[in-house]
Design a protein around this nucleic acid. Structure first.
Lengths: 231, 231
DNA sequence: TCTGGAGTTTGATGCAGCGCAATTTCTGCG
DNA sequence: CGCAGAAATTGCGCTGCATCAAACTCCAGA
């Protein structure tokens, strides 16, 4: 049986009593999703909303022409597929497991009760949505004003910050991520990303390999991202 | 004194009783803002949230380098500056009146009561935020995958759809908008926008002048926006 | 151990769209 | 009515990055 300890301590559930946590978890189903599998796909009727307990989820949009754009990565502890909170009845994008994942799912119909009975949880969800709106706007500004090199540097720094694991070589992005993935986050091509990483590697800013990126000189990469030129 | 009829009939307030509307309006201040004046600016403490009763508001972000990016245009009947709803205590962008505007403002502290007493209003606000998140994501995809010509065509079509006024020549965007404005919406330069409009004008798709754009052939412009090639 | 496929690297080439600059055309105001 | 400033137009050269193409490397599974 599911236990409140699964979610106690997550910032998303801050301010909730132990009893509320227990009651909330009791309403959830947990599911395991294998690497590469989809939790839901764009346009699908939103039957559930989710919290990622463990793993990493890639949220992807596909254009009519078949090109993909990565909207964001979800890390553990974050909610996703929260269409109900904004009155949608379908999911707006695909959610794909970047690694094996553990997920809690609540039925959409439960959202109303969440708002009434667990207002601090609901409020945290709204805050999350607000943060994502902010984030999206930031990305628009970035795409409109910065060059590819800066955007790629920035994307890698953000990934390292949110999903980084310290190793003896630097900060490793702790799920498999390809050049293609980075290009789909930054609106460029895998070729350009590959060239950039090669050149950064030769300058000692990063160490990278197949589906693997380690940031060794965050300071200098940050300067590229920020657009500052030298020093 | 302010009157419920100011807001009755706006979709944003759908589902509210006449008494609730009256009570809600009683809590608001109305203000007039002259063309070019700012309602609030980025980073400012969010003391109020707003509904635009009449006019057009431009929501603008400025980069550290001083470049501007237009996040969106607010048309009458829409809420804006709703930082509280997403637990922010500062405004994320500038709001500038594109024409003389009439605005209702409620103190931020009133938001909690809104959520409790007027849930359908609050819910409509959340729906708005959701729509804007969706919109922002769409724009990211657009910026990542489409070329300037398509983006500009799309921006103009959206403006015409949301703020268009039918004239005998076609659909006129009914507030002053410069080439520069369009470029700040699409992540290009005023020069490129000017060139595009010139060429579209010579092909009979639009009629444009100083701070003025009329779409005469929406169908064909839509095709450019959609990326479809021929007739 | 071999093999196929996915991921990556790197070169060569082309062009969309930016930066710059000069000029023209509006429009509001004295 | 004439002036000044803002908006718009347009030509030109350049370049950042996409596109096309080919080879290489790593890993999983037979």
């Amino acid at each position: 049986m599911l236990d409140a300890s699964l979610i106690a301590g997550l910032p998303l559930f801050a301010g909730m009593s132990r009893e509320d946590l227990t009651a909330l978890v009791a309403k959830a189903n947990s599911l395991r999703v294998e690497k590469g599998a989809r939790v839901f796909h764009a346009g699908e009727e939103a039957r559930s909303f989710f919290v990622l307990l463990d793993g990493h989820i890639r949220v992807v949009r596909t254009t009519p022409a078949g090109e993909q754009v990565i909207a964001r990565y979800i890390s553990s502890g974050e909610p996703f597929g929260i269409a109900q909170a904004i009155d949608r009845d379908t999911y707006p994008a695909d959610a794909v497991a970047a690694v094996d994942c553990v997920i809690l799912a609540w039925p959409s119909s439960f959202w109303k009760q969440v708002v009434e009975r667990y207002p601090s949880f609901a409020s945290n969800i709204y805050r999350t949505i607000g943060a994502r709106l902010q984030d999206a706007q930031d990305r628009i500004v970035e795409m409109a004003t910065e060059r590819v090199e800066q955007r790629v540097a920035n994307a890698i720094m953000k990934l390292a910050g949110q999903n980084g694991r310290k190793t003896d070589e630097g900060i490793l992005i702790d799920f498999p991520i390809s050049r293609q993935d980075i290009s789909e986050m930054t609106g460029t091509t895998l070729h350009t990303v590959s060239r950039l990483l090669s050149s950064w590697e030769s300058e000692g800013l990063v160490k990278s390999g197949r589906q693997k990126i380690t940031v060794t000189e965050g300071r200098r990469l940050m300067m590229i991202a920020g657009g500052t030129s030298g020093g």
